Structure formats: C-alpha cells, structure tokens
Simulated assay, not measured.
Amino acid sequence: MSAGYELAQVNIGRMRAPLDSPVMKDFMDGLAEVNAAADAAEGFVWRLVDGEGDGATGFRFYGDEWLIVNMSVWASPETFREYVYGPAHRPYLQRRREWFEHLAEAVTALWWVPAGERPTVEDAEKRLTMLREKGPTADAFTMRQVFDPPSA
C-alpha cells in the first residue's frame, strides 16, 4: 500500500430498537470491549467518537435517527479485515441481525484518504451513496473489491 494513503471505512446499521432497550443491551454492553480491541489492533489509526461514551452512537446518518454509524481509518485493507473477522469483533458481527435490520442496500463503504486526514460523517454519506449508485469504484469500494490507493 502507498505510505501516503490510509483506508477509511464507514458501516451503518438500522437499529431494531432504541439503544437503551433490552434488545440492544448486549450490543451496548459489548461496545467498549469491541472498540478497545479495534484501538489495540495492528493497523488501527483512528475511529469516530462522539464524546458521550466509548462509541459514536450520537451521530446520525442520512438524517435518520434509527441509523447509527461506525467510521474508522486503518493502515491497509488487510489490517482492517483482520480486525473485522478477528476474535474480538467476529462474535458481534455474527449477532448483528439481533440488533440491526437487514438492509438491501450497501451498508459498508471503503475509500482512500491522504495519511493524516480524518473523514467526516458527511464524507462517509457521500461515499456510501456513491457505492450504492455506481457500485464499487476507486472512489468507494467494498472489502470484496478493493481498489489500490491513488498513484503518488
């Protein structure tokens, strides 16, 4: 990977119930542990936090109060993939349908950012919309179809 770029990712979920409900309890109880594992993971660079706890549950995506957002930046697609499918995160990934509705549209988008740049929620909305409208491109792609970073 190019030393001048890092991998940004956004993942959204439409909650089945309010965050303080019994339905979401296990998800919320595990959030600190999953985020700590991300923070300690090889290749982790940054994640979006809202200042109201350990996660970013206070941000809204597409103006929808039932959508929550996870955003982070990683050194490479490989390090991001290792975390996502690793032992700390995989159990929560496997239980996602308990907490989040199945959405027919893409819920995760990846894109390259210049090293040191931190994406905003608005940036993420734009990239996910691009992926939904155009499919994977160099501007917004998936873990299944990764594009190389821009040329130096």
Rank of each mutant, 00 (worst) to 15 (best):
Y92N: 14
G58I: 06
P119G: 03
R97T: 13
E78H: 09
W112D: 06
D64Q: 08
L103K: 03
P119Q: 03
M71I: 06
F61P: 08
T120G: 08
I68S: 12
W112Q: 11
V84H: 06
V121H: 04
P91Q: 06
P91V: 11
A115V: 14
E122G: 12
D64F: 00
Y62Q: 15
A104D: 15
W112Y: 09
L110T: 04
R96N: 03
A109P: 05
M71V: 04
Y83N: 04
Q94K: 11
F59M: 11
N70Q: 08
R81G: 07
E101Y: 10
E78G: 06
L110D: 05
W66V: 04
Y85D: 10
R95D: 13
I68T: 14
R90I: 02
W74V: 04
L103R: 09
P119R: 06
P77M: 01
R97K: 11
D123K: 09
R96I: 01
N70V: 01
G116I: 09
V107G: 00
A109N: 09
R118Q: 12
S72F: 05
F80H: 13
A124L: 10
G116Q: 05
Y92V: 01
L103M: 14
E117W: 08
W111M: 06
H89N: 12
G63F: 01
P87Y: 03
R97H: 10
W74M: 09
W112G: 01
L103Y: 02
V121K: 04
E78K: 15
R118H: 11
M71K: 09
E98F: 05
L93M: 13
Y92W: 14
V73I: 13
P87M: 00
W111G: 08
V69K: 02
L103S: 03
E105P: 00
A88E: 07
D123W: 05
G86P: 07
Y83K: 03
R90T: 09
D64H: 06
V84E: 00
R95K: 15
V73K: 02
A88M: 11
F59D: 13
R96G: 02
A104G: 13
V107R: 14
E78P: 01
P114Q: 06
R60T: 14
V121F: 03
Q94Y: 05
F100P: 05
E117D: 11
E105T: 12
A124R: 07
D123I: 02
T108Q: 12
S72H: 06
E78F: 02
